[in-house]
Design a protein around this nucleic acid. Structure first.
Lengths: 126, 126, 126, 126
DNA sequence: GTGGTCTAGACCACA
DNA sequence: GTGGTCTAGACCACT
């Protein structure tokens, strides 16, 4: 599994790492039990600071996507669930994005097709 | 059209204003030609800084949702379009959100239904 | 509300801060809506690093004891609940401590009295 | 008596061993004079390091829960006492835990009941 | 070797 | 002014 960091992006580096690991799990490239590169390894590989990597890993741990194994380091787990809180925040997060697309003249079908395309990449991969 | 500012959200205030105005347009509460409250008024109404409101309005102007009239102030327009750049950024923005939902066990249908529910609010309103 | 940091303790500084703030809430010295000293303020007051303070505050925010207000900084809130997960972890945390006391010859009543004494400090204070 | 090591816990393995042995004594599964498995055996059984087991045993010896016999190895003893120092540290350790539970809305009775439930497991077992 | 904690100091975004 | 992010580098605990 390969990460790509965009240093010029306005998305914080730790967030890029977090997102790509979740996407890696969704795409089936990372499976439960897989060991992630060590904090220091990943940090030196990308020329970033270990705290930046640790922050990404720690958030993923808090959300239930990773565990810390005392020998293996950070390991993929699957404790994250879609509880009511998540669904609520999901709606809140996605609402302005869809509104924006709609205001720009995209039809409901066009927007839904894009969502579906993305989700198809995940399907049958987990 | 009523704005609701959450001072304890991790979304910047100017972004909240921006999002809610776009959502207002999507929901049909704001129509082309409608005049927005002046920067000064909106700022005092919510006890926030002028700069904060202006930043939101300026972004909306840049993106083609508002125009500035010498007399009326900021007016709703509909110049924003869904060009390839936008579609690209839309995908990039939605991708990690959908991946997250999928990793938490939501099915493709569940996720699409939520998107559709949101979009239905917009439909027939514009 | 006054914090006391023990630099020689084997309890990490950020944990001491976290615990004392929770204790401050339990004792009624901190009430919902109260503003905490800014990260930098508290850090310089105690001669510690701002990251250490931030870590404590951030954990408290994650657990629902604090919110970040965009003008006031960190503010006491009361979103933390005793859900099943918490009760489970509470038992797991307290079990070895009580076992230790019991093995050292303390009676059930002695141990419970100590717990009760502590809880009485909180009672009628919130 | 069976040990259960959780490699993905944030409690160090040596501490898990230590705690579970004390709990074993409290529950009456380990009685004075019982011989513990050898360091080497316990280490290989769980695939952990000799140092880790030795550290746990040594702490238990220091605290008066174990003795070392030249032939039998580590043997359960009951020299640990609840002196003032211990009581003091006990209070200090429990205090933030109870405060946390209280802040999350648990009543004094609910918290005490949980403590009592745990202690009942020990009672009549020693 | 791994992660965990802490420091010192920088720059930026937000209000 | 506030918090948010990132860096560079240190020391420690655990295995």
């Amino acid at each position: 599994m390969l990460l790509r960091i965009e240093f010029e992006s306005d998305i914080p580096i730790y967030m890029q790492i977090k997102n790509q690991i979740i996407e890696g799990i969704a795409l089936g490239m990372l499976k439960e039990g897989d060991e992630l590169p060590s904090i220091r390894q990943l940090a030196t590989d990308f020329g970033i600071n270990l705290h930046t990597v640790k922050k990404a890993y720690d958030i993923l741990k808090d959300e239930g996507f990773l565990n810390v194994h005392r020998r293996k380091g950070y390991v993929v787990t699957k404790n994250a669930t879609a509880d009511d809180n998540f669904i609520e925040s999901l709606k809140k997060e996605i609402h302005p994005i869809l509104a924006n697309a709609y205001c720009r003249g995209m039809t409901q079908d066009e927007i839904l097709r894009i969502c579906k395309e993305i989700l198809e990449q995940f399907k049958n991969k987990v």
